Structures are given as C-alpha cells and as structure tokens.
Simulated assay, not measured.
Amino acid sequence: MTFHHLAPGETRVMLQMEFAAEGAVEKAGDALNVVERRIKGDLKRFKEFVEAQGGETGAWRGEVGQDPTS
C-alpha cells in the first residue's frame, strides 16, 4: 500500500496485491470476484474511517517496509 500526497488534505492510497487462488473454494470465490469486492469494500471503509477522524490520531508514525521473505 502506498500513500501519495496530492494536495493539502488530499492523498491517494494505492494497493497492489497478488493473490493465487488455491483449492476449489478459493478458485470459485476468485471466479465470482469475491476477493476483489472484499478488498474494495475494505478500502472504502478505511477511507471513511480516515476521513471521519478529522485529523491525526497521534498514533504510531513509523514506516512499514517490504516483507524480507517476499
């Protein structure tokens, strides 16, 4: 996930995710776009949460790096 500053008070959040369906249930869910819809819903809820805060929460300000195992 990356955050791109566009303007004061405006940021674009981009998510890149790889998913390989395994097994019949996951493959069926993938064919029905269940994963894509779930991700879009989660991102929408994240956007609503962030916008509802109205400002910084004072929470952790560190950085998340790449997973060294990937």
Rank of each mutant, 00 (worst) to 15 (best):
V25Q: 10
A52M: 11
K40F: 02
A52L: 10
P68I: 11
K40A: 05
R12F: 06
D67W: 13
V64H: 06
V50T: 04
H4E: 12
A21I: 05
E22S: 00
G9C: 13
F19W: 14
A28L: 05
K40D: 12
A24P: 00
G29S: 07
R38G: 06
A21T: 07
V50G: 08
S70V: 15
T11W: 15
E22W: 02
L43R: 10
S70Y: 13
K27A: 01
R12P: 00
G9R: 15
E63Q: 11
G9N: 14
L6A: 03
E56P: 02
E10D: 13
F49H: 09
R38A: 14
F19R: 14
E36I: 02
G55W: 02
G62W: 11
G23F: 00
P8K: 09
A20E: 08
F19P: 10
G65H: 07
R45D: 15
G58Y: 12
T11D: 12
G9S: 10
R61C: 01
A31C: 02
V64P: 04
K40T: 00
D42S: 11
F3M: 04
E18W: 11
E10P: 00
R12T: 07
E26K: 07
L15P: 01
A28C: 02
L6I: 06
P8H: 08
F19T: 06
D67Y: 09
H4G: 01
F3E: 02
V13T: 10
R38M: 13
E63R: 10
A20G: 01
K27F: 03
A24W: 03
W60E: 10
H4D: 11
K40C: 04
E26S: 08
A21F: 03
K27Q: 02
G29C: 12
Q16P: 01
V64G: 03
E26D: 05
L32N: 03
E36M: 11
K40N: 09
M17G: 04
E63I: 05
L15E: 05
N33W: 12
P8D: 13
N33E: 14
A7C: 04
K40Y: 07
G41L: 08
A59L: 09
E26H: 00
F19E: 10
F46C: 02
F49Q: 09
V34R: 07
A24Q: 05
M1C: 00
P68A: 01
R38F: 10
A7P: 08
R37V: 09
G62K: 09
G65I: 03
L15Q: 08
G23T: 00
M14T: 07
D30R: 07
T57A: 15
E26A: 07
A52I: 00
L43F: 10
V13F: 13
G41N: 14
G23W: 00
H4C: 01
A52S: 14
K44Q: 14
F3Y: 03
R12Y: 08
K40L: 07
T57Y: 15
R37Q: 14
E26M: 06
D42H: 08
I39S: 06
R38K: 12
I39V: 14
F3P: 00
V25R: 14
Q53R: 07
L32I: 06
V35E: 15
K27L: 02
G65N: 06
V50E: 09
M14H: 08
A59E: 12
E63V: 02
A52C: 03
V13K: 11
T57E: 15
E56K: 05
V25K: 12
K47G: 00
H4T: 08
D30G: 01
A24T: 10
F19G: 03
V64M: 04
F49W: 14
L43E: 11
K47N: 07
